[in-house]
Computed example of a mutant assay.
Amino acid sequence: MLSRLVRRLREQSTVGDLTKSQEAVLLRLERDGSTTTTALARAEGMRPQSMAQVVQALEEAGLVTGSADPSDGRRTLLALTDTAREHFRTGRLAKDDWLTRAILHSLTPEEADLLAASVPALRRLADYP
């Protein structure tokens, strides 16, 4: 049941025709900030060569950019572009809008209150190690 809701939310916002690996890289860069291709590969459990292909596709799509690492000019730090950040912002708005409409139109006021009251417990579950 929860996976269906997550799937419906994902359907509300897309950054185009991205692979799961490309989406994972964008989400990681948004959450963790700038990093190297090697660190991304390690975090995603991929070979560095495979990650380099994912990053290249994202760079070509204008969603990721690289710049010299100030502490080690031999390394390249990858970061989201303004275009990618705008996709995240508008995507979140679309998800919020869909979820608000779904709650208003498919739940009774009592059910909506019960759902709102369960949010702190759901957050604790999501944060459980």
Rank of each mutant, 00 (worst) to 15 (best):
M1T: 11
L2N: 13
S3G: 02
R4T: 09
V6A: 12
V6M: 07
R7N: 08
R7H: 08
R7F: 08
E11P: 02
E11F: 07
S13E: 06
G16E: 04
G16V: 13
D17L: 11
D17H: 08
T19Y: 04
S21P: 04
S21W: 03
Q22W: 01
Q22C: 02
E23R: 09
E23N: 10
L26W: 00
L26C: 01
L27H: 05
E30Q: 09
R31A: 07
G33R: 04
S34F: 01
S34P: 11
S34T: 09
T37Q: 13
T38I: 10
T38A: 12
T38Y: 09
A39N: 15
L40Q: 02
A41K: 06
R42L: 06
Q49G: 12
S50K: 13
M51W: 01
Q53S: 15
V55I: 13
V55C: 03
A57N: 14
E60V: 08
E60C: 03
E60H: 13
A61M: 11
A61G: 01
L63T: 03
G66S: 14
G66E: 00
G66L: 03
P70F: 03
S71W: 08
D72Q: 11
G73E: 10
R74T: 15
R75A: 14
T76F: 00
T76L: 12
L77R: 06
L78G: 01
L80E: 00
L80V: 08
T81L: 02
T81A: 01
T83C: 00
A84S: 06
R85F: 01
E86Y: 07
H87K: 07
H87F: 07
F88Q: 01
F88A: 04
R89K: 13
R89C: 03
R92A: 05
L93Y: 12
D96R: 11
W98A: 10
W98L: 07
W98M: 06
R101G: 03
A102T: 14
A102K: 13
I103D: 00
I103G: 00
H105P: 00
H105M: 10
L107S: 11
P109F: 03
E111L: 10
E111F: 02
D113F: 12
L114D: 15
V119M: 09
V119Q: 05
A121C: 04
L122G: 11
L122R: 08
R123Q: 09
L125T: 11
L125F: 12
